[in-house]
Design a binder for these strands. Structure first.
Lengths: 320, 320
DNA sequence: CTGTTAGCGCCTTCAA
DNA sequence: TTGAAGGCGCTAACAG
C-alpha cells in the first residue's frame, strides 16, 4: 500500500488520520487507497491504541421486548458515533451475569448493563472507576455507578393518585419479580399510596401475560375495586382473564398497567398505564457511556420521567 | 508475566495452548497466571491469527420481536462456542444494509443476515465464497448462499387447506410488505390454494396490529368467509377491530395468522396460525456459520417445518 | 513536511 | 523441551 503510492507507511498513516501532508502525496495515497480498496486493520489499530471502539451490552433475555428495545437504542446511537456493539444474553441466569460483565469489560471500551436482577453485591464489586460501566433501570446504593433510570416510583404513584381520584379505596397490586428493582419501586409507591386513602394488598404475580391470568383468583379474593399490575403484560393477562369470566372492565373493576407497550393501546378496553421510554433509556445510557469514554465529567445519574396514559380500563370506583 | 514465572514468553504461550511443556515449568506458569490474573490480549491474538472469534448479525429492526428472537438464538449459541456477537440494526433503512454488511464482514469472522427486504441484487453481490455469510428466511436465486428458511409457503398452504376443509370458499389475504420474501411465499400459497377450491383476493395491509385494523374495511368489501393474515399481528389487529364492530369470530368470519407469537394464544378467541420457530432459525443459522468457519462442507440450505395450530378463530364457513 | 525506526502482545518459526 | 528472534499492521516518536 505504501509501496503502491510510492511513499512511506508513516505518510499513509498521516494522510488517513488527516494530519499535515503535502497535497500531492496525499492525493497519491488516496488514489492508491481507492484502487486497492484499502481498509485499515482493526486489530493492529487496537493493539497500538488500546481502544477498540466497541461497547458491550448485557441483558438477561433478548426475547423480552423491554431489553431488545433498550439494546436497539444503544446500538443505533453507538453506531452513529462509530462504535460497534457486542451483545450478551445471560439467557435467564442472573448468576452468570457478573462473569459475563467482567469478560465483556476486558474486551470492550465500556459496558451497559441492563440487569434488574443481578445481586447488588456483584454490581458493587464491578463499580471500579477504571471500568466504564453504565447501569440501566437499576439503582445500587453505595456504588458510584453512572445510572439511568425511569421514575418507576413516580409513575406508579401517579397511577395510584389517578385511581384515588376516581374514588377507589381498595386495590390489589399484582407484584412482579421479587428481586427486580422496578418491582421494589412500584410496590413502594403502592404502599405509600395510603396517603391517598388507598388500601393496597400485594399478590405475587410475575411479569408475563400468564402470570397475570394466574393471579386473578387470589387477587379477586381480596374484593378490590381496581387491579394494579406490575407491568402491562401482567395487567393485560389479568384483564383478558377477567373479560373471559364475564367481569366487566372498567364498570365492575378497573385495571392499570405500566410501561405502555404497543399492545396496551390495541386491546379493548385500552389499558390505563404509565409510559416507560425504553428508547430514551438506551439513548441516555449511550450518552453516559460516551461521556465516560471521553473522560468527561458528567452528572452520574439520570432519571427519566414517565407519563400517565388514561385509557378505557379505569373508571370511577364504587365506593361501597 | 514470563519474567514472573522465570521462563520465556514462548513457554508461557505453549503452556497456555496446551503444548508439551515440562510439568514443573507448566505449574510455575499457571500459578503466575493465577496471581497476575493474566488475560491474553485479544487484539494481539487477532493480529497474528487473523481470526477474531466474533460474528456479526444484521437485522432491519431490533424492536421487532421477530428479529430479536433470531438474534437471541444466534448470540446464545455463538457464545457457547466462544464467539462474541456484534449486532447491527439498520433502523428501518433497507438501503443501508448492504454497506453495513460489508463493514461487518471485514470486522468479523462471519455474518448472519436477517434481511427480508434487502434488494436481491445486493445480496447476490455479497455472495462471495470468501465471505462467510448466512442468510435467514430469505431465498436469493443465483447465489450460492448458505440459507436457513422456514417453510412459509407450506405453512400458509396448510392453513388454506384447513380453511377449505372447513368449507370456506372465498377468502381475503391481508398481504404483508410487498418486498418481503415471506410475504411473496405466503401470497403464492394463497393463490395456489385455488387447487382446494378457495377463491382468494389479496388486500394490501402490512405487518402490524395497526395495519390489520386499517385493512378491515377493504377486506370486508369482498365479502369473504375468512381473513388470512400475512402474520399474527395483522390477523390480531383485524380480529380485534372486527370484534369491536360486533362481528363474531369465528361464527361470522374465520381469521388466521402466521408465526404463532405468544399473543396469539392469549387473545379470545385464540388465533389459528402456523408456527415459525424463530429460535431454531437462529440456532440453525449459527450452525451453518460455524460449519463454514471450520471450512466444513455442509448442506447449504435448511428449511424448517412449520406446524398448524388450530384455535378458536376458525370454524366451518357457511358455504352461501 | 517526510522517511526511518521501534514497539504494541502474541504466536510461530528456528536453533540450541 | 526450551529460549531467542521475527513479524502480524499500525501509529508514535524521532531524525532528516
Amino acid at each position: 500500500m505504501a509501496r503502491a503510492a510510492g511513499v512511506s507507511t508513516a505518510t499513509v498513516s498521516r494522510t488517513l488520520s488527516g494530519l499535515t501532508v503535502r497535497p500531492e502525496l496525499a492525493r497519491r495515497v488516496r488514489t492508491a487507497a481507492q484502487t486497492l480498496d484499502y481498509q485499515p486493520n482493526r486489530a493492529a489499530r487496537e493493539l497500538v491504541s488500546g481502544r477498540c471502539c466497541t461497547v458491550g451490552v448485557v441483558v438477561p433475555d433478548l426475547a423480552n421486548p423491554y431489553f431488545s428495545n433498550v439494546l436497539k437504542a444503544v446500538t443505533v446511537n453507538a453506531l452513529e458515533s462509530g462504535f460497534r456493539t457486542i451483545v450478551v444474553d445471560a439467557d435467564g441466569d442472573p448468576d452468570a451475569e457478573p462473569e459475563l460483565c467482567r469478560t465483556l469489560l476486558r474486551q470492550t471500551d465500556g459496558v451497559v448493563v441492563v440487569s434488574p436482577r443481578m445481586p447488588a453485591a456483584e454490581l458493587r464489586a464491578l463499580a471500579d472507576p477504571a471500568h466504564k460501566l453504565v447501569l440501566v433501570n437499576r439503582v445500587v446504593s453505595g456504588a458510584a455507578l453512572p445510572t439511568v433510570t425511569v421514575d418507576a416510583f413516580g409513575g406508579m404513584f401517579g397511577l395510584c393518585g389517578h385511581l384515588a381520584g376516581l374514588g377507589h379505596r381498595r386495590i390489589v397490586y399484582l407484584a412482579g419479580p421479587a428481586d427486580a428493582w422496578q418491582n421494589a419501586e412500584r410496590r413502594r409507591a403502592v404502599e405509600q399510596a395510603r396517603a391517598f386513602g388507598l388500601a393496597a394488598v400485594a399478590v405475587e404475580a410475575g411479569a408475563t401475560l400468564e402470570a397475570g391470568e394466574a393471579a386473578v383468583d387470589e387477587a379477586m379474593s381480596h374484593r378490590p375495586t381496581a387491579l394494579v399490575g406490575f407491568n402491562d403484560l401482567v395487567a393485560i393477562g389479568a384483564l383478558l382473564e377477567l373479560v373471559r369470566r364475564g367481569v366487566r372492565v372498567p364498570e365492575d373493576l378497573s385495571v392499570t398497567g405500566a410501561d405502555d407497550i404497543p399492545l396496551a393501546s390495541r386491546i379493548h378496553p385500552g389499558l390505563t398505564t404509565t409510559t416507560t421510554p425504553l428508547r430514551r433509556l438506551g439513548e441516555t445510557a449511550w450518552d453516559l457511556l460516551g461521556a465516560a469514554l471521553r473522560e468527561e465529567p458528567r452528572s452520574h445519574s439520570f432519571q427519566l420521567a414517565t407519563r400517565l396514559v388514561e385509557r378505557g380500563s379505569t373508571a370511577p370506583g364504587r365506593g361501597e
